[in-house]
Amino acid sequence: MKESQNKKLYEHIDAYLNGELKGDELKAFEDILNIDDKLKQEVEKQKQSDKLFKQIDAYLNNELKEDELNAFEELLKTDNKLKLEVEKYKLVQSALKDTSSIDFRKKLQDIDSEINTKVSSKKPVFKLSRVNWKVAAVLVAFIGLMSLLFLQNRESKHEKLFASYYVTYPMEDITRGEISSHTSLNKLALSYNNGNYERVIELLESNEDIETNDKLKLYLGNSYLNINKEDKAIEVFQTINTDSKFYSDGQWFLALTYLKKGKKDKVFPILENLNANNNLYTNKASRLIKALNAK
């Protein structure tokens, strides 16, 4: 049975056991129950699980009588399923006691909806009910044409593709073992993450680890790329060797740097190579090749 059907069945059984089925719905369910043994079994299973749940509830809320309590505790020693359910109940208990965290999460969800509403309401909405449609259509077409011409003049296809494919290599965790000085590690992370690429370059260029650490090279190359020093970025990315585990990262950024410079002939072989090997960039490389080939 598919999961969605399963879910529906359980919801139905739940509704039945909770007394939420009424009239024809209830009658229909009971009629099927009389002839379907499998359903009968499921209902029985669910009933047992509800009973167990109620018992745990009573146990943790100190509502069991002494003999019931003893029996329950005895069972708890041997029954792992029961133990698990008791643990889950305790988790719910502690999670829901902490209302300030729940309120904070609610606040975050509200903020998220606010931001999303704002973004979607930023989309232009033209109310044309009282506007002359013909004039509006001509205007829209004119503005559209003008912006297209404007954009085409402003930005080449390569630059546009670069902008849509380039994402700065994220700063991964660097451990102290990877870089000699702990102080410069903090400074490096702070500067990189705050977009202070000049400072990153300064720190990395003077760091002896840059010669041997390919991850640092990726940060350095990306920093150069972010301050429009493409030739320097190319130099750095080219030093990441084929046997490095960061080779494909280096090649991807090398291709993007050439793309930014409009050197299509240099971009293709790198992308084709990435596309031919299985790595994180295979799909992106294939998409970019297609985009570059498209008119």
Binding site: L91, V92, S94, A95, L96, D98, I102, R105, Q109
Partner: peptide, 10 residues
């Protein structure tokens, strides 16, 4: 686990 329960509650 606590985070998951709180998330599910909402």
């Amino acid at each position: 686990k606590k985070l998951i329960i709180q998330k599910c509650l909402l």
